[in-house]
Amino acid sequence: SRMYLVCPMNTSPQVDPHKSGQDVWEEFSHSFTPAVREVVEFAKKIPGFRELSQHDQVSLLKAGTFEVLVVRFASLFHVKERSVTFLGGQKYSVDALRTMGSGDLLSSMFDFCEKLMNLGLSEEEMSLFMAVVLVSADRSGIENVNSVEALQETLIRALRSLITRNHPNESAIFTKLLLKLPDLRSLNNMHSEQLLAFKVH
């Protein structure tokens, strides 16, 4: 039985059947590491993030990196043509990915990315939204909830004011954006389950 890794953070879904599980994992890890580093660099630039404790910085990044990457790479999911571009640059149709074993997570990612892209946000709005996604006081293992909560509130206020200024006639956009947060959580949970299954396999 042929194995596939249908994650667009991978260079390609094809897995060399001659490689050991460890090698496959190392190659995959090598391909997503730069994107994770980018998220850390992004976090460092969020005003106030570096003032949080080291423990809380790590906890927020551990819990939220996947969600930030989904927002950051939403444009890899081409809703109209039903295809996904992998980081290696190759495009794969949803049908092809389905035959490789992708399931509900891929469909849910498409739904999410379509709705997010339809909001037509600017790069600045997307960045501020990613900061709000990352700085969430209800992540597990946060030791100073008050500090994270205070930073989260500041970021949400800044996002609201930016959206209100840029879209004065579309007051629902801010609400729609906040409603994306639970959607991201559920994608994150589905993704963790798949990673676990992969690791166990």
Binding site: S29, T33, V36, R37, V40, E41, K44, R50, Q54, Q57, V58, L61, K62, A63, T65, S192, L195, L196, K199, V200
Partner: peptide
């Protein structure tokens, strides 16, 4: 397996990427 981020090496990548400026803070 309760903490996929740690198991999958994500924590290590995050800590290394953060380390530079965390060391600055400690000085």
């Amino acid at each position: 397996f309760n903490d996929p981020a740690s198991n999958l090496g994500l924590e290590d990548i995050i800590r290394k990427a953060l380390m530079g400026n965390l060391e600055e803070r400690q000085e």
